[in-house]
Design a protein around this nucleic acid. Structure first.
Lengths: 354, 354
DNA sequence: CTGAAAGCGCTAACAC
DNA sequence: GTGTTAGCGCTTTCAG
């Protein structure tokens, strides 16, 4: 009596095997105690009927879904792609699936995403929050005690662990090199829209990777009594053309910078394109460094000096941390991840002042 | 009477609002008909109690989950990352969530992934199947009528639509250029393990992007009475070092190739690294082309001539196709996507025979 | 080790 | 419009 137009259920398997539904469920679900005889009888019946477990029904019954929600701004971004791989691999080994939400860095979509995941009763959340004035949706997760771990970014005022990369030491080493090469005018380019006029006035930016990089650079410069000039920090670039415009403005004109810092590999591509079309030599005319170590960094001329970040580790660490939180370890240690400087060849002596 | 240690349910909201559960569900779920008065009363009660809809329960009841399962080999791979972005964006607009499974190209994990997704009762499947001898797990989906769309790869013998990129025309243009530049020995490097001794003996490879590229190249060469030599096709490279070894063997020795084709950007990076360390000039000593157009292709010296593929479109097209299938349009048109040649500068005159 | 029965939270027929 | 009632498929007491 195979069911006509509906899924095979545990009940079907039960009658086929001549056992109770409860016992069938135990055999199929691998819990409780069931005799060897019943076990094999049930499995045979299930196989014969083509039974497919319905984990949705199980979840509504148990209250757990064995899946975690992951929210990122842009899965296309190699940083997130690689993080998600680390997350996915780590969680799978622990028996969890990943429900992925891509927000396009839109705070509204992020709110929707969290709501949807919550509706699916995911057992935990892994979120790289988009830049927003406040985080009521995340706050709500926290107050209702749902396991939440942030990564790549932090949310000011939120008491949730966050896995971020420490760039201080690497940035200091970088700036040491740069300053010792005679540079004192440094430009920084990033894509990150902020309402604030200047980067260090914006409390939100401070909690983003870009903010941390900027602060680390500024701190390192301060040791030499140098400053990051406000007009040399371009954090609001929008798209390739805009990046190139910012770069152009920074390296040309009256008072050009002699070192250019790209906030990530995407920025670096546009920046290098612009420098090339401007016939600006690297590192002859301007030195360049990138906060990211893309696979091609060593292939261009000159090979790029970069601050390399442990990206995969960010993902695995965040996932592991979340597993701890879900297991009830509330006092989980947030792992320390550090970037490191890779000297290749795009930092050179500062061009003599004209 | 807020519930003690359990989720707020529709029942709680109902009593708080003084309406029946059914009516409350209708108001909250936005279906059926409910008066304005009741509607607002329910919403207020829900808000006040902090009600969170349980879409799992809904799914158990309705039989639909409003989510689709996506299975890829490696989310870290820019191709998949970008495809998934297209998929995710397209599906979200249609009201579907994405459950992502990363298999690491392991057929076993792929089987597990499909089973897990099926257990979650996803409404459809979007799969880039790993290379395997056969596809019983996918076949099972097909026979039980579950919406399934493949992308990037095909599964021999499976009657499921597949969204792949047509490289024939672009490859022909590329080979025209190459042959007219005087080349007749062409090497091809890829990472794809196959049991077959030679690429064109393996029926599985034919259905992968790599196989399509190889075939297109071979076909184009044939027009000139030229052949892809078996020993010049290296499809089994494993990891960066192995890729470099293959490249080394291809361009050196008695009878070197004069043109090197990289199957994707990852291969290209290692290949270019090896050529550089070998002091082989491009395109002076050997010409190079890549079946992929990474952002940095124009940055290296020389800028890379590539066959560019519509990656985002692959994702969106596959998602749209799946939406059609899920909507019951069984005779959906598989969209035609084509690659195109981007001439930049890595193809040059063949080195004179020594 | 086994089974009966109640319950998870929501939807859907059916009456009113 | 609204409420009643019976499910959806699985788990989980609680007896035995």
């Amino acid at each position: 009596m195979p069911p006509v137009n509906r899924d095979v259920t545990i009940g079907d398997v039960a009658s086929q095997a001549g056992v109770s539904r409860a016992q069938t469920a135990r055999a199929l679900g691998g819990y409780g105690s069931v005799s060897e005889a019943v076990h094999s009888r049930v499995l045979a019946a299930a196989e014969q009927l083509g039974y497919r477990a319905n984990s949705l029904a199980r979840s509504v019954s148990t209250g757990r879904s064995q899946s975690v929600g992951v929210v990122v701004g842009d899965i296309e971004n190699p940083f997130f792609a690689l993080s998600v791989r680390g997350i996915s691999d780590t969680l799978r080994k622990a028996g969890y699936d990943v429900v992925l939400m891509n927000t396009g860095e839109s705070p509204d979509l992020e709110v929707d995403a969290v709501r949807a995941l919550d509706g699916k009763r995911v057992d935990g959340f892994l979120i790289a929050p988009a830049l927003a004035p406040s985080y009521p949706h995340l706050q709500a997760l926290v107050v209702s005690g749902r396991p939440l771990v942030l990564f790549d970014r932090e949310a000011p005022g939120l008491v949730a662990p966050s896995v971020v990369v420490d760039v201080e030491v690497a940035a200091r080493e970088l700036i040491d090199d740069v300053v010792e090469a005679g540079h004192h005018r440094i430009g920084f380019v990033s894509t990150l829209s902020s309402p604030a006029a200047s980067w260090n006035e914006d409390p939100q930016i401070a909690h983003t990777p870009v903010g941390r990089r900027l602060r680390a650079v500024a701190d390192a410069l301060r040791a030499y009594d140098l400053d990051l000039h406000a007009k040399d920090v371009r954090v609001g670039a929008r798209g390739a053309d805009d990046i190139r415009r910012h770069v152009r403005e920074l390296v040309s004109g009256e008072d050009p910078v002699t070192t250019l810092l790209a906030s990530d590999a995407v920025i670096a591509v546009s920046a290098l394109e612009e420098l090339r079309s401007l016939d600006v030599a690297v590192p002859g005319d301007v030195s360049v460094a990138v906060f990211d170590d893309p696979p091609w960094a060593g292939l261009v001329s000159p090979p790029l000096t970069v601050v390399s970040q442990p990206v995969l580790e960010t993902g695995t660490a965040a996932a592991r941390l979340l597993l701890g939180v879900m297991a009830g370890r509330s006092r989980a240690e947030v792992p320390a991840l550090s970037a490191h400087l890779v000297r290749r060849g795009s930092i050179g002596p500062a061009r003599a002042m004209q």
